[in-house]
Design a protein around this nucleic acid. Sequence first.
DNA 1: ATAATTTCTTGATCTACATCAATGTGCAGA
DNA 2: TCTGCACATTGATGTAGATCAAGAAATTAT
Lengths: 195, 195
Amino acid sequence: MYPEFKNFHQYFTEKALVAQKDFEKLLPYFSVEKYPKGHTLLSKGGVNKHIYFVEEGLLRFYTKDENGKEFILHFAPENWWLTDRNNLCSNEPSEFFIDAYEETSVVLLNHDFIEKATEISHEFRTFHEHILQRHIKQLYRRINLLISTPAKECYIEFLKTYPNITQRVPQWMIASYLGITPEAVSRIRKELASK
Amino acid sequence: MYPEFKNFHQYFTEKALVAQKDFEKLLPYFSVEKYPKGHTLLSKGGVNKHIYFVEEGLLRFYTKDENGKEFILHFAPENWWLTDRNNLCSNEPSEFFIDAYEETSVVLLNHDFIEKATEISHEFRTFHEHILQRHIKQLYRRINLLISTPAKECYIEFLKTYPNITQRVPQWMIASYLGITPEAVSRIRKELASK
DNA sequence: ATAATTTCTTGATCTACATCAATGTGCAGA
DNA sequence: TCTGCACATTGATGTAGATCAAGAAATTAT
């Protein structure tokens, strides 16, 4: 069923507990897109009101400093959400970049979808609120890690948050996510391996 | 008007653009509390489903590590919101602490208030969504700062976020918020003063 | 006011991680 | 298969900020 958005469907019915009949009502309100490796979905200064559900592949959300150095705020592999939430409500230009690191297919939603879905399905409404709250909590956890913990433990936490992503992205992206250098990641790994 | 929650009222009518008649309908749905300096509103392991609007005073939101060292995630002076959002939806015990660093009076809301307010006032609904999104954006900015920027600039950004808080809290709390030591804050200040 | 406690400053050393540089490794294209 | 090129490793050295320690200043308690 729904080969193009199997994960999305499964997520809605099994995680968000949205009834199949409600899901069917929502079919007209979203679309599926496929992006090649390296495709840019949002650049600094742009406006992008989409909410992405990653069906397959890997997106990354990041900033660049004056020298073009990238800082990754968030990876989004299969079954993750990604959006520049600021953009949703306002028309302010974004400070962030989003691009596809692998060939990626996404389910494309916008604010109307959320409105419609919360109207149709009480389950979705509750679930949507829940994921927003959980997202905020995760961000606080990450801040807490960054201000309280040395790089080695941040790396260990990273592995827990994104199991198997290590094999899919170059080391400098992990370093960029952790706020350290690729060399430091290499040494941390060496040390962890020796145990 | 409303001497006990003047700021709250002003915030609702002027910032959230809630009509006076709608505000009046909400009067039965919240209460005002006053806490003495040092009062603990939430401890790790506890559950606390309140949303606080700080009418007067100063709350802080923080964690502690195994050695009891505190890490401040968030200050909330007048006109700020504070809540352990995870707690709102679930009954999981909290990982965080909240306490009053000054004598503080808060407007106490809970999830029902938000439901009611979004039902009564479309303006509030939009505004509430907006502040959630903005909150997430702020958290990403902070993460971005932490992974990309040396302590001095983090300190400068802190001053922008919380003008005048410097005079109200000890230096170690600022250090704790920035993830550095009080000595480092002292040196950063000295350096900034010499310009 | 005096004592006690907390906070702030400053200096001396230490350490985690950065930077720079060289070498090694695996994969993509001719 | 050889040639690049991006990526990973390792070593040598530098530096921001930590830690430790002592004294000054400010606050709070007696």
